[in-house]
């Protein structure tokens, strides 16, 4: 029975994430425009429209550019598969290793860079270089933050950490708080990476956009669930707990959209590198605190 429930929860989770990912982006766009605001459903419409268009590919691009969009969306969905939204104990729970999740975020970035290089254009190369250079700061912060969270909570499994957080077993130590702040800043930097949309069209472009949207939602889920573990359901918690969990997840996602919109309007001019340096500093302090802390058990 438990296994059936966990499969059901996983399916519900995936469906919810896939439906909500373009909506989150649409909502952030809607909230960050005061006048002539675009429709919340615009990203969904764009994706559906692009899927019916004829893709145009640059002469001389290789299998990397042809298969890249599918790869990008695959890794994004896989990342979302591992990060719980409303309920812990899903089928993917034992596999939800934080380092693996970090690795999946990294590989998504690598696919983007390789696709941009494969276009063989100046603009693509500039975007690729910029994405790779941002990754140089963001990725160590991500890995170190993951390590700090793991050290402070005594396990590297996201699902266990969330379950313990929901039960109040892992208090919000300064290390975890700082690491989460660093993670949030890194997530913001992911949103600021240069776009490589100009060299792709049709379904390829649709997949690229969807992968970005899923990754953004997965990131919000990761930081949100770790920061505000309230209402997180368990698989066997019953119908009521699931409803509460879904409502809590919707609330967290709305809050994330609001914060993202505020950051976009207020902090549009702030340099990515400055923010990443701040994230690195926070993360460094968090890691020192985590390493200096007592026995995690």
């Amino acid at each position: 029975m438990t296994i059936l429930l966990s499969i059901l929860a996983q399916l519900l989770h995936m469906a919810a994430v896939l439906v909500a990912a373009p909506l989150l982006t649409g909502l952030v766009d809607r909230l960050s425009h005061r006048r002539a605001a675009p429709d919340v459903l615009l990203p969904w419409n764009a994706v559906l429209r692009l899927l019916r268009k004829q893709p145009i590919r640059a002469i001389g691009t290789s299998a990397i550019a042809r298969g890249g969009p599918v790869l990008a969306v695959t890794f994004a969905i896989l990342t979302a598969f591992l990060i719980p939204s409303f309920c812990v104990g899903m089928v993917s729970a034992p596999s939800a290793d934080l380092l693996t999740i970090a690795g999946l975020f990294l590989i998504g970035r690598v696919v983007l860079v390789l696709m941009a290089m494969d276009t063989g254009t100046g603009g693509g190369a500039v975007s690729a270089t910029e994405i790779a250079r941002l990754g140089l700061t963001a990725e160590p912060v991500l890995l170190l933050a993951v390590l700090a969270i793991g050290l402070a909570s005594g396990t590297g499994n996201l699902d266990s950490i969330l379950a313990m957080r929901a039960d109040g077993l892992v208090p919000g130590t300064p290390a975890i708080t700082l690491a989460l702040a660093a993670l949030a800043l890194v997530g913001w930097s992911y949103g600021q990476t240069p776009s490589i949309d100009a060299w792709f069209s049709g379904p390829d472009l649709a997949l690229l956009r969807v992968s970005d949207q899923i990754r953004l939602l997965a990131w919000c889920d990761l930081v949100g669930a770790l920061a505000l573990p309230f209402g997180m359901a368990t698989v066997t918690g019953g119908f009521k707990a699931w409803v509460i969990g879904i409502l809590a997840w919707i609330g967290r996602t709305l809050l994330a959209a609001l914060l993202l919109a505020i950051v976009r309007t207020v902090g549009a001019r702030s340099r990515v590198r400055t923010v990443l340096a701040l994230a690195a500093a926070l993360c460094g302090i968090a890691a020192v605190l985590a390493f200096a802390g007592g026995d995690p058990t």
Binding site: L51, Q54, P55, I56, A58, I59, G60, T121, G122
Partner: peptide
Amino acid sequence: RSGAPPPREAAAWHD
């Protein structure tokens, strides 16, 4: 199966 026509090749877009 999305109904998009097969891809077409064209010279790369150099901004």
